[in-house]
Design a protein around this nucleic acid. Structure first.
Length: 782
DNA sequence: TGCGAGTCAATATG
DNA sequence: CATATTGACTCGCA
């Protein structure tokens, strides 16, 4: 498995120590349905990972209370062996109290100084602040409201960090005017804390790390205690009032000109831009779970988080959260996950504060006077339970503080993706004139079905084929190209769970399983007929007992997938891709000009497109299912099948495999019990890999080779091995095995292409009428 | 130039 | 209203 990661490089999130705690049962309803499952999966289980890989690092659990002491707190110094670059140095805190200690010892952000930033060696700052109260804040149903802690915590922070923060000067805390309100003091404290972290990082104050850690240790312990017991409140009971006030104050305080949303590519001041060592492997899956949890926990809308933390759109975030690519597969996309990671590493107050900071920034930018500045998260704090309100009050204050800090500490907006669109095509013209805002194209059902069906057959159709498709579906070529591009990528994405290396294989979709098996069957039959193979081949490795010695001469199939049959019949690869309703509609619509309708009314809509510009190049093929099958039946001698069987046959026949496969399918389909499709066969890969049975796809691995000198064998022979071919056609004995094999493969390829094209024609023709009918709606495709 | 990656942002959907 | 979907766009790379 390529997924196997070097333990040392595996940075995962320990669900058990983060949101998978006894925190509260109420949380579970907000968690992904498979949350427990996944959280306890080996991959996601920090404990397991920790056990197996002592260097495995996990996300710091924050805002969590748990008696679980066995966190995957593995920021061992050995995590990295490149000396000073030891990312993620551990925060060694004692565990006096379970909840507080737990979060304490795991909290802190780990920032790696960039090597080239200031010339100093990479340094790592362990910044941690008032998250002592996080546990309580989050555990709002199990702990008395931790309210006044804010003040105490702030004081504490100020005391502990203030003096270190002061030297920061340059960009952050020093800029802060004396806060006029008590709340502001909190803000300044937080600002100091934040600034400290940044300054430390910025200045690479490596030496201060140890001392700071010590201080933080004490600080956190105390904070934790304080937070866990006190009940006062800095201000009155109006959390949001206080918060808003704070926000407003900080806004005033920081007369920073509306920071044009200019993105710094790499702002060293931004903790979210903290570098993550290349050797670190972030478990994006867990990260996303964690993020999703955090967002829900604090009622942070995706849009807010996406825009203010990640500088991405809501849709992007949603997509990432739902379909995170493995870290090792990410390229520039790591940036986004890195920010997520860094954000989640922050103390709770900081996390929320940053959000607010960006919020304010945005407000200033957009002059959205109507937009309340309050915390986006749990603003109304309808959060479950009254305790939540209380704790969130404290939280809000902290957040406000952090916000103030962040807002004045030079925190920069997120780093933009290198390839984000910088100019929206839908840009409003001057004076709000809605510039040519072409409505977004939405494929019609027919278009989509057709495209998807084709995609199943050919993930990468040739340019010509795309052109044909575009013509038939009345779409732009670019649209078709985009579709396949997107489909490929998203298909790839959705299959990321599968063994990646195998995806490099010329992967063909499910229905091929039938043909694949048929091929095997045909081979077997041929072999038997030729009398060459004395004994029946192994059920799992049909006919290929002798092929091990010459793997290049043949192909195997990997795992005929279980769902093959059902997919075969439902994949829509029938002459019509229409639903029954659609068929009815079309039959009605076409009843007028539909004179020579196909014989099979049930499955064949009128193929004659009444379009003004019919695709002359590709005249429709009024073929019914029966008509399509007839030749096959005749050729194979297979008696008429049930409709379902016919569909299977047709499907198999139209697969982009070889005609041999189709014929073999036809010949054997009747004999093939559904179980037959579950047989396992194997594909010898160049790298020796094999697909596992669970793989959904059936894979052919045709041998690449030049066309040999051998005469083209009949289609049904293409599925044979050279030995079988020779047995079948003695004349071929003179042909070298290798040449024979190559010739066969070349022919297969050729036939495959031809059939793809034919199939496409059929497909398109069959749906032409429907497509036209549907597309003739006012929407028009282009 | 074509493709893939990463996104945006309009729309769907719940 | 929040989240999910998805066609199209931009950028980097081979």
């Amino acid at each position: 498995m390529e997924k196997s990661r070097r333990p040392a490089d595996f940075l995962t999130i320990d669900p058990s120590s983060t949101f998978m705690t006894a925190t509260s049962s109420r949380n579970f309803e907000e968690l992904p349905e498979n949350f427990l499952e996944s959280a306890n999966s080996p991959q996601g289980n920090g404990n397991d990972g920790a056990a197996n890989s002592p260097q495995l690092a996990s996300l710091t659990p924050m805002a969590m209370s748990s008696s679980d002491q066995s966190t995957s707190y593995q920021y061992g110094s050995g995590l990295k062996d490149d000396g000073p670059a030891g990312l993620l140095s551990p925060l060694h805190l004692d565990n006096r109290r379970s909840s507080a200690t737990f979060s304490q010892r795991n909290s802190g952000i780990y920032i790696k100084e960039e090597d080239g930033l200031d010339g100093s060696p990479p340094q790592h700052l362990l910044m941690s602040s008032m998250h002592g109260g996080q546990a309580d804040l989050d555990r709002n149903d199990a702990t008395p409201p931790a309210v006044s802690n804010v003040e105490l915590a702030s004081t504490m922070i100020t005391t502990i960090l203030g003096d270190q923060a002061s030297p920061v000067s340059s960009s952050s805390a020093a800029v802060l005017p004396p806060p006029p309100q008590p709340a502001a003091s909190i803000a300044s404290a937080a600002a100091a804390a934040a600034a400290l972290g940044q300054s430390v990082r910025r200045n690479s104050i490596a030496g201060s790390l140890n001392g700071l850690q010590q201080d933080l240790k004490v600080d956190q312990d105390e904070l934790g205690m304080l937070n866990g017991s006190s009940s006062g409140r800095v201000h009155n009971g109006d959390d949001m009032a206080g918060y808003r006030y704070q926000t407003a104050t900080s806004s005033r305080v920081a007369p920073v000109p509306p920071p044009k949303r200019v993105y710094s590519i790499n702002d060293a001041n931004d903790p979210l831009n903290a570098e993550i060592d290349d050797d670190i492997y972030i478990d994006t899956k867990d990260l996303c779970k964690r993020i999703a949890y955090e967002l829900k926990q604090h009622s942070i809308p995706q849009a807010i988080f996406a825009e203010r933390i990640l500088c991405r759109s809501q849709g992007t975030l949603s997509d990432l959260l739902r379909n995170p690519k493995p870290w090792n597969k990410l390229k520039s996309g790591r940036e986004t996950f890195r920010r997520m990671f860094n954000w989640v590493q922050q103390p709770l107050a900081m996390r929320l504060g940053i959000l607010d900071m960006y919020n304010k920034e945005m407000n200033a930018l957009e002059k959205a006077a109507s937009v309340p500045t309050g915390l986006p998260m749990a603003a109304a704090n309808g959060g479950p339970g009254g305790a939540a309100a209380a704790s969130n009050a404290a939280l809000a204050a902290q957040a406000a503080a952090a916000a103030a800090a962040a807002g004045n500490s030079g925190l920069s907006p997120p780093t933009p993706a290198q390839n984000v669109r910088h100019h929206r095509r839908s840009s409003m013209g001057e004076d709000g004139q809605p510039a040519n805002k072409r409505p977004r194209l939405v494929f019609t059902d027919i278009q989509k079905r057709t495209l998807q069906a084709i995609f199943k057959e050919t993930q990468r159709p040739s340019r010509e084929m795309q052109q044909t498709i575009a013509e038939h579906l009345r779409l732009d070529l670019s649209t078709v190209a985009n579709f396949f591009m997107n489909a490929r990528r998203r298909s790839r994405l959705s299959h990321d769970d599968e063994p990646a290396p195998y995806q490099q294989v010329e992967a063909l979709l499910t229905a091929e399983a039938a043909a694949a098996v048929a091929v095997a069957e045909a081979e077997k039959a041929a072999a038997a007929a030729a009398g060459s193979s004395s004994s029946s081949p192994s059920p799992t490795v049909p006919t290929h007992t002798s092929l091990a010695a010459k793997p290049s001469t043949s192909f195997f199939v990997v795992s005929a997938p279980r769902p093959a049959l059902s997919l075969l019949t439902s994949s829509g690869l029938t002459p019509s891709l229409l639903s029954p309703e659609e068929r009815r509609q079309l039959q009605q619509q076409n009843s007028n000009n539909n004179t020579a309708s196909s014989s099979s009314a049930a499955s064949s809509p009128s193929p004659s497109p009444p379009s003004p510009s019919p695709p002359a190049k590709h005249p429709p093929h009024p073929q019914s299912l029966g008509a399509l099958l007839a030749p096959i039946m005749a050729a194979s001698g297979v008696p008429p099948q049930s409709p379902l069987q016919q569909q299977r046959l047709l499907h198999a026949m139209t697969k982009p495999t070889t005609m041999a496969a189709a014929l073999a399918t036809a010949r054997n389909a009747a004999l093939l019990a559904p179980q037959a499709l579950q047989r396992k066969v194997f594909v010898p890969r160049a790298n020796g890999s094999l697909l596992v049975p669970a793989v959904r796809r059936c894979v052919f691995t045709p041998v690449k080779g030049s066309v040999g000198a051998a005469a083209p064998p009949p289609p049904s022979l293409l599925s044979m091995t050279p030995a079988q071919l020779v047995a079948e056609i003695p004349q071929l004995a003179a042909v070298p095995t290798q040449a024979l094999a190559e010739a066969v493969e070349a022919l297969k390829e050729k036939q495959k292409e031809e059939q793809q094209q034919e199939q496409l024609q059929t497909l398109l023709a069959a749906d032409a009428a429907a497509a036209v009918a549907v597309q003739s709606e006012p929407e028009s495709c282009h």
